[in-house]
Nucleic acid binder design. Sequence first.
DNA 1: CGGCGTTTTGAGAGAGCTCAACATCGGTGG
DNA 2: CCACCGATGTTGAGCTCTCTCAAAACGCCG
Lengths: 199, 199
Amino acid sequence: MSVRDWLPTPVQAAGIERALAVGETLFRVGAPTIGLYEIVAGKVRLARVDHSGREAILYTATAGDTIAEASLFMSTYHCDAIATTDAVVRLYPKAAILAEFERNPRAAQPFMAMLARQVMNLRTRLEQRNIRSARDRLRHYLAINVRSDGRTVELKGTVKDIAGDIGLTHEALYRTLAQMAVDGEIKRLDGKIILLQPV
Amino acid sequence: MSVRDWLPTPVQAAGIERALAVGETLFRVGAPTIGLYEIVAGKVRLARVDHSGREAILYTATAGDTIAEASLFMSTYHCDAIATTDAVVRLYPKAAILAEFERNPRAAQPFMAMLARQVMNLRTRLEQRNIRSARDRLRHYLAINVRSDGRTVELKGTVKDIAGDIGLTHEALYRTLAQMAVDGEIKRLDGKIILLQPV
DNA sequence: CGGCGTTTTGAGAGAGCTCAACATCGGTGG
DNA sequence: CCACCGATGTTGAGCTCTCTCAAAACGCCG
C-alpha cells in the first residue's frame, strides 16, 4: 500500500526527501515530532535503548514502509530511528497533514482505512507466528494469500523474503515446499504456487 | 486501551449489546458491514475458510479488544467472526460513527491515534517473535515494558498470560525466569520484576 | 476441606536452526 | 563469447533448544 493511496495529494507534494548514511540518526527519543516518514530506499530501524545500554529493536522498516504515524498525535518521538543501511526517506510534515485533515475531513478516511487494514494484517501475521510447525505455518500463509480462485498463490519477492516474512529460515521453507510438492499438496511454478487436493 | 478513550461519546451511547453462545456466528464473509464490535466478555475468532474447507484463524479477540475497525471503510466483511466461547459483544454502528466523524472531524483524531498506536505495538510484537532464544525474547519484552525508572517491570496478568503474549510455553518462560534470577539478571517480586546489573 | 488454576521442576523427543557444500541464474566486464 | 561474481535456490547432517507430556506444590475461593 503506497503513500499515494492514502496521503492527501497536497500533502504528498509537501514531502521532503532526505538521504541517510548507514548509522545516521533520523530522530531520537524525546525529540519534538515533525511528521511521519516514508522509506524510499534502504532500511531504517526503530529502537529503544534499554537500561543496560543495549538497544531493543521495535521495527525494521524497508522501502515502501511508513513509520511514525503515531507521531501525528504526540509531541515527542518515543523511540530512536537509525539508518541500518544507506537510505532515503521522505518526510511528510505533521502540520501539513493535520491542517489538511482540518480543511477537508474526508481526507482522513483513506488514512484511517490504511491504518485499520494494517492492524488487521499485523494481527494475522502475529496469529500466524503462533503456529509452530513449518508446514502448518506455510499452509496458513498460503490460505491467507491465495487468489480469489482459491488455488493460486502469487509469490511476491523471493522465497527467501517470504521465509523472513513468516518467520522461518529459508532452508526450512525450501524443505517444506519440496516436501509438500512431493506429497502432491502443492505444485510450484515460476513465481506461483498452485494448491492441489482441495480435499 | 478502552473504547471510552477513542470512540466519540455519542457513539458509545449507541452501542448495542449482544450475547453469543459458543460456536455462534457474529458475521460472515461477504455480509454487509454494519459496524465494529467491542468484545465485552469471552472470545471471538476471526477466520477465513481456505480452499480445502479448513479454517485459517486470523485473530482471536478477547475481552477489551475491538474487531472489524476496517469494516467502517468497506461494504462487506472479509472474514468470519465466530464465538470461540460464550461471549458478549457490543456493536457500534458504522453509520453512527461515520456520521459523528462528519459532524465533528476532531472526533476522528483519537480514533486515528488509537489505530496508529496499535500498529506500532503490533509491529513491535512481531519483531519480538523474530527472536528465537527464550531468554533474549524475554529480555526484549522486559526492555519494552520497563517503567520509566528503567528497572521495574510491572506484570499485568499471570506469568502464563505473558507466556502466551510473547509466544513461549509457560514452562519455558518459568524456566527462563528462574535461570535469569539465579544468574542475578533479574529479581522477582510479587507482580513485579526488577532488572539488575545495568552493566 | 476440596477443587481449580497457577506455579514449578523433570525428562525426553522432535523440529527447526546452524553450518556447510553445491547448483543455478543474471548481470558485468574483459 | 566466456569467465567471474554475487545472490538465490537446494540439499545434507548434526545439534540445540524449546515443546510436550507428567507430576507435584502452592494459593485462592467457595
